[in-house]
Computed example of a mutant assay.
Amino acid sequence: MQYDPATKRLETNDGDLIKVISCPLEKKWEELMPMPEKWDDPLRVDDKMKLQGEEDVHFFMLAQADQEPEESERAAWLSWKERMRGKPKDYLKKYCGSCQKCVVNANKFSESQISALVQVNPEICLHLSSEHPELTVKRTTGEENDWECGYQGITQQGLPIIQTARSLAAIEDGVRRGYRPLFVGADYQGDVGNKLCVSYCSKANVVLYERDFRAMFGPMGGSKNGVSSIMVRHDDARHPSPLAAYMIPDDITPGDRVYVADIIEEIESQRWNQGDSWRLTSSEAVWTGEKLEIERREPVMMVG
């Protein structure tokens, strides 16, 4: 295979087009959010995350209880917390909050398999890098796009972009990058389904999750003593994921205007007089310090 960054064409060695690979936002694979096969699968990380001795277990238990160690242990504690951030293992697919689509890691497929994927779904989004053993990249010089949209992206108007995590692994990944999750329930409120309590401990910078009421940590919902939690219920047959969170960077302050690329709440944006309606998918918002106040306008009425 060969890829030309100038034309964005992925071709066979004979010059036959496989697919034009081009992202208008120039997103990078490492900045996308992991999307496991199941929304409640935890983040897969490298072996640095394994507890390696009694000290690791001791610090882990302190983190579970949201407690600080003795001053004499502080240096080792900080070193342990940094190691516990780990490095996420590569996923087969990741989620793009701007397009609300998954991007497939084509580095895990051969040329013939990539061609088959494109034939089955010509609109598929692919990630491909020079690490692919069958790929040759035509070297060109060019400038990076200065409004790249990743975790740290900004809009062309200069507004910070708030990304949305829609799986447990994505929330854990964001926390390891230094973001604070703002939980919002995304599922229906029915009687049938399984429960999951997810908590974020700001002191230890960890995400905890539990299905058993007897082992839950922190409040059932909301914030208390530095712990933010949400209880969600889920029916697998109705919705791919009931868990969602806005990932809030630490450099925005109350009153800042931001851009929410993937809105969780159901806000009506358009309505048809024949009964159909459509939700708002992205919008500017104001960060209050506690929540995102999304601009709400009267839905656009369509008649016909």
Rank of each mutant, 00 (worst) to 15 (best):
N225P: 00
D187V: 05
F217Y: 06
D236R: 13
Y179N: 02
M220S: 06
F217R: 03
H239M: 09
M231D: 08
S202V: 04
G221I: 10
S229N: 03
D236A: 15
K203P: 14
N194G: 13
D250R: 05
R233K: 15
T253M: 05
H239R: 01
F217H: 04
C201Q: 11
G174Q: 01
V192L: 13
S241Y: 04
P219I: 01
N205R: 15
N205C: 14
P242F: 02
V184E: 10
D191G: 04
V207E: 10
R177M: 02
S229V: 01
H239L: 12
A186Q: 07
I252R: 05
R238T: 12
P242S: 10
S223E: 15
V192K: 15
I171M: 05
R177W: 04
V175H: 04
E172Q: 15
A245H: 01
Y200P: 04
K195E: 13
P240H: 10
G190I: 08
S229E: 01
V227Q: 07
E210C: 15
V175M: 00
I252C: 10
L243W: 08
M247S: 03
R180V: 05
A170V: 14
Y209K: 06
I248F: 00
F213G: 00
I248R: 00
L196W: 05
A245I: 02
V184D: 04
D251L: 06
V227Y: 01
R176T: 03
N194L: 08
V232Y: 08
A215E: 03
D235S: 12
L196D: 09
S199L: 06
V232I: 15
T253R: 12
C201S: 06
Y200F: 11
F217S: 06
E172A: 12
I252D: 05
